[in-house]
Design a protein around this nucleic acid. Structure first.
Length: 274
DNA sequence: CCAGCAGCCTGTGCGC
DNA sequence: TGCGCACAGGCTGCTG
C-alpha cells in the first residue's frame, strides 16, 4: 500500500512529467472523491509537486493546489488517451478523475474509492486537518533527538506509534513491520520502554527500509504502480511483512502473524523478543 | 484526553 | 459452480 516510499516515487514521476505543463480540462467521473472548484485550476501551469507524509500536493501557477491522498488503492498514472502499460489500461472502470493537460493525461484510478482529491488555495493547505496534524518526516526533519523524544512521551506500543501519522509522517504497515525486524524489536514493546540503544536501532531501521523502498521504487505487493504505471520492487525485499510461515532471513525461525490495532503484524519470534 | 473500533469500499481467495 | 466470509488497510469520526 502506498506509504512514504511509494508516494515519493509517484511524486518524483509527476514532477518530472507535469511541471511546466498546463491543465486544460478536468473530467470527474466519481464526484465523492473530488472536492473544490475544478474551474479554479483550468489554464494554470504545474509549478511543482510536493509530498507530505503519504499526501501529495500539485502546486499551480495561480496559487491553487491539487491535494491528493491515494490511500490504499489509488493510482496516479500519466500517459496518452487511451494508454496501455503492462497489463494496465487507462482509463479503466476504476478511473474516477482525469486531468487533461496540454501534452498529457493524468489518470486517478482507485478500486476502493477511499482516496481523495481537493482543489484548494496553496496558502490554505496547512489549515487542512490532514496536513496540519502530520508529525515530522523521516529522512527530512525527523532528527534522532526528536525521535527519542516522541518515543519517550508515548504510552503506545512501538508499532502503533510508528504508524501514527500525527507522531511520525509516512510510515505504514509494510515499513513499520520491516523496520522493527531490522531493529530486532518486538512490535508490542511499549515505545517508552526502549533503551537508548534500542531506540537508535529503530531510528536506523526506519531510515534503512524507507531508503531501500525509495531505491527500488516502492512495494507492489498489491496494486501500487508509479506515475508511469510501472510496478516497484520492494516486495522482493520484505523482511517479515506478509511472510507468515516463511523463514526468518536472519535466524531461520518461522515468521509469525498477529493483529495489532486491527492490522496484520508480522515478526520473527526468535529475533524480536518481548 | 485517549484507546478501540466501525465505516468507507471492492477484489481476491478460501472453505463449504 | 457459487455463495458467504475474512482480509487487504489509511484515515475519520464516534463511543466508552
Amino acid at each position: 500500500m502506498p506509504e512514504l516510499p511509494e508516494v515519493e516515487t509517484i511524486r518524483h514521476g509527476l514532477e518530472k512529467h507535469l511541471v511546466g505543463n498546463t491543465i486544460v480540462d478536468v473530467e470527474i467521473r466519481l464526484a465523492k472523491q473530488f472536492t473544490g472548484e475544478p474551474k479554479n485550476i483550468i489554464g494554470a501551469e504545474v509549478v511543482g509537486v510536493r509530498r507530505f507524509g503519504k499526501g501529495l500536493v500539485i502546486d499551480l501557477s495561480n496559487g491553487q493546489s491539487i491535494a491528493i491522498h491515494v490511500k490504499m488503492t489509488g493510482q496516479l498514472v500519466i500517459g496518452g488517451r487511451p494508454m496501455t502499460v503492462g497489463n494496465g489500461r487507462y482509463p479503466n472502470k476504476w478511473t474516477h478523475v482525469i486531468f487533461k493537460l496540454k501534452d498529457i493525461f493524468l489518470y486517478y484510478s482507485d478500486i476502493r474509492q477511499f482516496g481523495w482529491i481537493k482543489i484548494i488555495q496553496s496558502s490554505d493547505l496547512k489549515a487542512q486537518s490532514f496536513f496540519r496534524d502530520l508529525g515530522p518526516e523521516p529522512l527530512r526533519d525527523l532528527t534522532q533527538a526528536k525521535f527519542f523524544d516522541i518515543l519517550q512521551n508515548s504510552r503506545m506500543p512501538i508499532k502503533l506509534l510508528l504508524m501514527d501519522q500525527k507522531k511520525i509522517a509516512g510510515i505504514g504497515n509494510i515499513y513499520a513491520n520491516d523496520a522493527l525486524f531490522i531493529a530486532k524489536i518486538h512490535p508490542k514493546r511499549m515505545a517508552s520502554s526502549l533503551t537508548q540503544k534500542e531506540k537508535t536501532a529503530v531510528f536506523n531501521g526506519i531510515e534503512e527500509v524507507l531508503k531501500k523502498g525509495i531505491e527500488v521504487g516502492g512495494a507492489s505487493e498489491w496494486n501500487y504502480v508509479n506515475a508511469l504505471g510501472e510496478k516497484g520492487g520492494y516486495q522482493n525485499f520484505f523482511q517479515v511483512y506478509n511472510r507468515e510461515g516463511e523463514l526468518c532471513k536472519r535466524c531461520g525461525g518461522v515468521i509469525e502473524r498477529m493483529k495489532m490495532g486491527g492490522r496484520g503484524t508480522f515478526y520473527c519470534p526468535g529475533c524480536q523478543r518481548l
